[in-house]
Amino acid sequence: MGKVIVCFCEDVTLEEVRRAVKEGYRDLEHLKRLLGIGTGPCQGKQCLVTVAKILAEEAGFDPSEIRLPTFRPPARPVPLGVLAHAELEEE
């Protein structure tokens, strides 16, 4: 059997997500911290919605009840060298 990948950055499979939900991880935040979903280079751009759907299905939630993890900058990766040369504003 081949793997069905859900999070391509962290190599997390559909099977792993389902098993974690069955084990009682019923929160995207916990799934993220257990499996690493959404913490890789794409920062959840491909996996979060899929994982939310799987969680809703497996746990019997309505998708609208699912709490998304906090969104933080950057929306796209930025080299530290770019930041280091930025103009600082006065606070």
């Binding site: 900058p73 930025v78 530290l80 060298g81």
Partner: peptide, 9 residues
Amino acid sequence: LAAVNWLRQ
């Protein structure tokens, strides 16, 4: 580190 990409704060 200049050439390393920042991912999250």
